[in-house]
Nucleic acid binder design. Structure first.
Ligand code: FES
Ligand code: FES
Lengths: 129, 129
DNA sequence: TTAAAGCATACTAAATTAGTAGGATATCGG
DNA sequence: CCGATATCCTACTAATTTAGTATGCTTTAA
């Protein structure tokens, strides 16, 4: 069970932005500081923008900034923006779609809720120190 | 973020065994009941055996049985046996191995602990109904 | 002694994730 | 208005992981 490196990279970038909330910062600089491929980070920030977690400014002296205060953005927000809804099992059996419940479905439901709760409690501002 | 179908299949098989704890049951039967490839399940049960979660009997009328009472086997036990230790991020940055902490490491540590705790509280006996 | 079961290893196929390429579009500063 | 700078968009490729298969050996109860 793993989160993808999208989550790791995206979170690092967001924490990086959170460290100087008031300024905009361009991709190249973030990528360099966090050792991430520029082109890959470009796409991740794009996803984050579509989820209204960052704001972008084009043109000279452009870049990115958090759209909300770091205190109001959680790790869950970031992870969901990049990887989609938190659901720790893709259903493999036909039972899931049928009237019969599969015996383990309840486990993944409980766990998913738990994970989301945990990640919702951690805000970017908790990670800037 | 997903657990693999190993976890799903393995858990289903274990719950299946837990439903009639006293009997041994052969792979073919379990595979049929849970709609899993026989050969694939063979390997999963082998992993579970190496983790001392099931016991196997060779020869005619052989099969598998839980090695401990269903009340004493948790979902965490099964998942760890099949997928290895619960660690929701493989470290991607060099920072992780260095003296510098990466800003998000703490998140995955907290989360990993939380997941393991949640899964440890759910026993096979909770899933047999 | 033989058929029924598990055990072990190696291989292949499918799916997902990570990363790249190349250009289109917008905008600030002069 | 021009051009440099930076984001935006789509499609492709490479790498890795996961899922599943094939083949044959070993053990053991009947
Ligand atoms: S088949 Fe969907 S959770 Fe079991
Ligand atoms: S680099 Fe290992 S958790 Fe961030």
């Amino acid at each position: 069970m793993k989160f993808s490196s999208k989550a790791e990279y995206g979170l690092k970038a967001m924490v990086n932005l959170a460290k100087d909330e008031t300024r905009t910062k361009n991709i190249k600089l973030i990528a360099k500081e966090e050792t991430i491929s520029v082109k890959y980070l470009e796409r991740l920030l794009n996803d984050l923008r579509k989820y209204d977690l960052v704001e972008s400014f084009k043109g000279a002296n452009g870049g990115y900034a958090l759209k909300r205060p770091a205190k109001k953005i959680s790790v869950a927000d970031v992870v969901i923006a990049l990887e989609g809804p938190i659901a720790p099992m893709k259903c493999v059996g036909k039972t899931c779609r049928m009237e019969h419940q599969c015996s383990s479905k309840i486990v993944w439901q409980i766990l998913g809720t738990q994970i989301e709760k945990t990640l919702s409690h951690i805000k970017l501002s908790d990670l800037t120190k």
